[in-house]
């Protein structure tokens, strides 16, 4: 278990230009505190690259490569193979990609890299839309969310489709380690990062990263919103290892989805019918989670 007093004071991601309150900074800096300075970061097009590598202000203290949107998995493969071929074994390669960069345009490269079993750590920080380009929907945008290209209107309640299940896609690859996490649960995240350090092969963490700007809430509420996502069952914390899924947090009863939705501008247009739709979707997801991953482990 990670103990805060043992964490390095060194900041390997510092001075970045992310919006105030964005969980992205927390994710990046904590991940690098765990991995340490012998880490190379791959940054596809995303908020994470845009706000950190504007010449001459370079916010990572570790080596990094800004690279193509679709290629994170493959770039990590190349780094890992290049290091191996030269006999370097003590370096971590870390991908920091957004939801669109992972679940949409980058899914093929990620799937290829995981299938090959290449040695890398991949963090998908999920702010549930293309935030960097101005809040357009991705396949990880939740049902009912208002985005700039899935707007609500007289004939639309916003995003039509529920979130793609990236965690299960990774499990389908029989990946050595996959987890979900949230920037609102930093210790849970750091413990998961700690696990990735000791395992060989592909490691994947899908971490929820509430976005004050895109979701529409005050900058001091990032953690509160992140926690509400878990408490209402709109997100869950789990890990997959040795062929088994472990739920890290199992709420006894899920809070009403309204408590989560009402705090965010992107859901404010929803009416009772659409909220019901979201509640039903959550409930059906949780039935599956409880059947597959909670009861079977008892």
């Amino acid at each position: 278990m990670v103990k805060v007093k043992n964490l390095t004071d060194k900041e390997y991601l510092y001075g970045h230009k992310a919006c105030p309150g964005c969980g992205l900074g927390t994710i990046g800096r904590l991940a690098l505190k765990i991995l340490g300075e012998r880490t190379i970061v791959a940054l596809p097009a995303s908020c994470m690259s845009t706000v950190t590598t504007q010449y001459p202000q370079m916010n990572y203290s570790v080596p990094s490569l800004t690279m193509a949107f679709a290629g994170t998995g493959a770039v990590l493969t190349g780094m890992s193979a290049g290091l191996k071929a030269q006999g370097v074994t003590d370096v971590h390669v870390l991908g920091l990609a957004g939801d669109g960069g992972t679940a949409d345009i980058g899914l093929q490269a990620l799937s290829g890299a995981v299938e090959r079993g290449d040695d890398f750590i991949y963090i998908c920080y999920d702010n549930e839309a293309y935030m960097n380009t101005g809040v357009q929907r991705s396949s990880l945008t939740p049902i009912g969310a208002n985005t700039t290209n899935s707007p609500s209107g007289t004939a639309s309640y916003g995003e039509k489709k529920p979130k793609k299940n990236l965690f299960e896609i990774m499990i389908a690859h029989r990946i050595p380690y996959a987890a979900t996490a949230s920037s609102a649960y930093p210790y849970d995240f750091m413990n998961k990062m700690e696990k990735t350090k000791s395992l060989r092969g592909p490691k994947f963490i899908h971490i929820m990263c509430p976005c004050p700007t895109g979701w529409g809430f005050a900058s001091d509420l990032t953690v509160e919103i992140g926690k509400l996502a878990v408490e209402t069952g709109m997100w869950y914390l789990a890990e997959y290892e040795n062929g088994k899924v472990k739920m890290n947090v199992i709420p006894k009863t899920l809070k009403p989805v309204e408590e989560y939705l009402i705090k965010q501008r992107r859901f404010r247009h929803l009416n009772e019918d659409t909220i019901k739709l979201i509640r039903e979707h959550r409930d059906s997801e949780w039935r599956i989670i409880r059947e597959r991953w909670v009861l079977s482990n008892c």
Partner: peptide, 27 residues
Amino acid sequence: DCEYIHVESEHSAMCAAMGASLVGARA
């Protein structure tokens, strides 16, 4: 004696070559 990688596309082939070159490998 080399790392031969079965990439899943040409885009990924060049991505991987770039990642390898970044760490000083001949690709």
